[in-house]
């Protein structure tokens, strides 16, 4: 354990923070400056991003600055993690690549040297959640999914067909990354979503089928994928 650091298991993280006996959230994360998220080797980018979201939920609750608490966030990836995994994280943070200086986040692989990690810890500029929220609000991919969600609430499938085309256009060549916007099991739901989108744009969905399947879209895709919480 590093001096001055605390640890929390991923299960506890997902369980959410707890208020004290008086119903008050103790400000125990007031002095939190850096977070190192140690990513297990079986985690996909979608799982890592869900943990990232949970950390921010903890910080927002247990620090007086809430979502404006400044943090340097380091993803500690397993040695075998591919560049696609890193790309998935960048997509989730609505950036082309993860820059320690401009995003408040950095990536370090466990195969790297300790010196590199220490340098990253010093380089990564602490940032709050507002820039990430603003980037996500302006993210074309998230906006396309948001439009599809809005269309899925209508009875007219033609709106959904247009929205589905937009989604496939913005994800052209990287449809696999739709996984990171899906609820767990993300890959399985991602597959359903891709099939459904293709069926929609090729006109193979009758109004009856549309009525019976549109609800499934909301089961596959996480609500916060379109609109950052």
């Amino acid at each position: 354990m590093v001096l001055g650091s605390g640890m929390i298991s991923l299960d506890a993280l997902r369980g959410g923070s707890l208020a004290d006996a008086g119903g008050v959230n103790p400000r125990v994360l007031e002095d939190l400056r850096r977070v190192l998220l140690v990513v297990p080797s079986h985690f996909a980018a979608a799982d890592t991003l869900r943990c990232h979201k949970s950390v921010w939920e903890w910080v927002s609750t247990l620090s007086s600055a809430g979502d404006q608490h400044e943090l340097a966030f380091i993803f500690v990836l397993p040695p075998e993690a591919s560049s696609a995994d890193e790309g998935g994280l960048a997509l989730g943070l609505s950036v082309d690549f993860i820059s320690p200086l401009s995003t408040g986040h950095a990536v370090w692989r466990q195969s790297g040297s300790l010196d590199e990690l220490l340098a990253l810890l010093n380089q990564t500029r602490p940032m709050d959640l507002l820039p990430l929220k603003a980037r996500r609000a302006a993210d074309a991919k998230r906006n396309a999914l948001a439009q599809l969600r809005a269309a899925s609430l209508q009875d007219d499938p033609s709106l959904a067909v247009r929205a589905a085309k937009t989604v496939l256009d913005v994800f052209a060549g990287m449809e696999h990354s739709l996984d990171i916007y899906c609820c767990p099991p993300s890959h399985q739901h991602g597959n359903h979503l891709r099939t459904w989108l293709r069926a929609l744009v090729t006109g193979n969905v009758t109004p009856q089928q549309w009525m019976s399947t549109k609800q499934q879209f909301n089961d596959w895709v996480a609500g916060s994928a379109q609109r950052e919480t």
Binding site: Q68, P131, A137
Partner: peptide
């Protein structure tokens, strides 16, 4: 700024 505006500054003024 491409993503952030004076409204985000307003948020920070309010929060702190």
């Amino acid at each position: 700024d491409q993503t952030m505006t004076g409204l985000d500054v307003l948020d920070t003024l309010k929060r702190f």
